[in-house]
Design a protein around this nucleic acid. Structure first.
Lengths: 150, 150
DNA sequence: CCGTATCCATTCCGATACTG
DNA sequence: CAGTATCGGAATGGATACGG
């Protein structure tokens, strides 16, 4: 009878998304979607998770308007899962997380997947938090305020 | 008998961190830590979660070297939980997530907590992914490559 | 090839009682 | 105040069987 607490009612923009992507699989599905995967089987092969779990995660991501389905490009009677605008908005989050993982979860010699600028063939720059004027901000330079409008 | 799959063995820097922060509470604890909270009771009051859960999450974050304990500043016999270097490295991730939540999980009129530049009192700029040369990159501008070194 | 349905083990989480 | 111990219900995840 005790419901799991949702974060939808808080006024914190960090908390609300966690109902949608705060689990072990959703971000990996989204990562694969950014990487061009779109078919059920592709996700399952890439992630190695059970089909029922994948199905549930995909439905949840669709319900949260992060993925949507489109008719399959080939003649197959199925559909493909692609990122919505909202889902595409996660790009900086995913890149920042990738860079953090790259820095703190790998030995120096260990090979890893890296995100590179397609044109220059060089790793993307480290994501930074900047002021409106362009200055790089540290955590101590910032503070939380309640704001009504944007 | 079936163990939960860990992501520590993959070569993807997005996947590995998810064992540490891929749940509903860890990122919120880290958010509070960035916001200056450090005591057990402060976290519990802020998050409203059961004490045993909070305890387990704090221990997990310590085990992952994201938080560490320091002797309490006041005379109390307890300690405080503060971010490690690794934990501080999550700042861009948290800001990017915050901005995404701000954009897609709130009505325009709804009040919300905003991260502002302490000095200028203006919202921080939108986190962007940039090339080594400074150009802003979209998802289509990038691709994953396997790299051996940094 | 794409999913859905079922079953079961594990984990997570909330409430509460208890110790220092 | 700061935790630990215990319990029960809920959600998650894995394996597999099955229908389109």
């Amino acid at each position: 009878m005790v419901k799991r607490t949702s974060h939808q009612d808080t006024s914190c923009p960090v908390a609300r998304p966690l109902d949608a992507i705060g689990d072990g699989w959703s971000l990996l599905i989204i990562r694969d979607a950014f990487d061009g995967l779109s078919r059920f089987g592709q996700f399952q092969k890439s992630l190695g998770l059970a089909k029922n779990i994948l199905s549930a995660r995909l439905q949840s991501l669709i319900a949260h308007d992060i993925l949507r389905t489109v008719p399959a490009g080939d003649g197959s009677p199925h559909h493909e899962y692609v990122l919505t605008e909202k889902g595409l908005g996660l790009f900086p989050v995913l890149v920042a997380l990738r860079q953090w993982g790259d820095e703190f979860f790998f030995d120096r010699t260990e090979p890893r997947a890296r995100l590179v600028d397609k044109e220059r063939r060089r790793p993307v720059a480290k994501v930074e938090v900047r002021s409106a004027g362009g200055r790089t901000l540290t955590p101590e330079d910032t503070v939380i305020e309640m704001r009504q409008d944007g």
